[in-house]
Design a protein around this nucleic acid. Sequence first.
RNA 1: GGCCCCAUGGACUAGUGGUUAGGUCACCACCCUUUCAAGGUGGUAGCACGGGUUCAAAUCCCGUUGGGGUCACCA
Length: 520
Amino acid sequence: MQTTQVQRVRTRFAPSPTGYLHVGGLRTALYNYIFAKKMNGDFIVRIEDTDQARKVEGADKNLLQTLEMTGIVPDESFLHGGNFGPYVQSERLDIYTNYCKQLLDQKQAYYCFSTAGELEENRKLQMKQGLQPKYNRKWLPENMGGSMPESEIKKKLDEGDPYVVRMRVPDYISIMFDDLVRGPVEFDSATVDDQVLMKSDGFPTYHFASVIDDHLMEITHVIRGEEWLSSMPKHLLLYEFFGWEPPKTAHLPLLLNPDRSKLSKRQGDVAVEDFFRKGYSPEAILNFVALLGWNEGEGSEREVYDLKDLVKTFSLERVGKAGAVFNIDKLGWLEKQYIKERPLEAIIETIRPVLEAELEKSPTEMDVDRIQGDDYLGKVIELMRERVDFEHEVVTFSTYFFFDPVEYEEKAVAKRWKEDTNDILLEFIDLLEATDDFSAENLETLLKEFVGPKGKKPAFLIHPLRILTSGVGFGPSLYHMLEVFGKETVVRRLKKGVEKVKAPGSGPDDPGTRTIVIRD
RNA sequence: GGCCCCAUGGACUAGUGGUUAGGUCACCACCCUUUCAAGGUGGUAGCACGGGUUCAAAUCCCGUUGGGGUCACCA
């Protein structure tokens, strides 16, 4: 009887710490994570900091932190520098050096002493002849086709001549592989450059380090952006040089700018944390990014998925091949879906600091303890959650729940004020002052019964009441809003308001949409 | 330019030889309604083009066009 050995699935996300987490990076990380989890495997993060010049201090921690905010937490880290952290390539230099020696010994890599100037000249020459600009061993006789005599090499090394190590790409062999999303792909080695493996500063290049690490870390599936597809032959060759079995690969379609070029800064935000800062939630961003290039298929019309749902339903086979434009409209829609469903406590937690900051800035005539309480905030949220684009707007978009209006929307006033509005308003204020039941239900019957005998429709008072108590002509149900404000606030605002807002306003006919400040 | 990848409405996509080409976002209209949202109903809009293969092609093949990626001692 034969036992089949099943290899544990392991994926990785390998960012370079040069800045912030990019939305494209987030999607790559997400797909790696959910694929691994779906297969009951491991997901690890590896920091690829082999470029000393571009390295940004603290970027690695920031990357991890942003990633973890979305719920994508690496399974495995090892202890380094006194902290738990991911694998870091700059701490593994001796490993790469040793493997480089092996390749040198096997003559599958060679020292290259060409200077930048020579390389540049070489490139120009090839361009002139309409050829692909690539490192050409034969055209750079000084390196003798990568077969400089040992003595010469030793001499140059001893003299401290700067050098790099290049891989020796065999001529004219066909390199084929099966990509999990692209299907079969074929390259001719003649189009592959003698890639630099070790740079003159002693650091490995991405290509070299990632191949070695993927093997050493037993990565079974490399899931990354399509921009890496064309370097597959180099990587495959390296696996062959070492006699290692290459991992399976899946090259993801690119995220695109509106003009369909590769998603970049300058055409909008690309840093995940910028989206957080604007008020988008991790759930919505994750959901959105998951849908860019993947769908559940099989007639599914679902749009809303959380991380767990994705782990359950994701499959690499259903990842598309064409690039996807990063269109922010749908992200906004998703955000609203989440706001509608989010538990009260969660929203309170995010808006309380926003409210506190606002209270810092300006005083309020309302009872600060009351309006900061969970009870009050909860009521405000229920009235506002279907009307805002972001959670923080519960405070910033409807400030009237916390501050008395200091101005009244001119356009709304012009539209809703009639000759007798203030007189009737005054009467109604008296009525309000006399009632103790400020429930929405009671306020509604109160108003309707008051206004009926006067031959007016409820709207005659509803709009002025809204404007005087909130300052604006739009918002939640008036009765519910007044209930939340409470009697004291409502009466105070109304009394102050009737004095400031005068009737029709013979004014010039250009109300526009701006608001006018009507102060004392 | 060489090499590689891709191609369904404005955006994300379903579709694997026979469908009135489906869904979501956005947009428009109507309904609901005190406003604004939300919600409901309906609507505008699509298989890049040309050849094949086949009784039959969005679907398979070839070509064209278009777009993208990549050609660093950056990842």
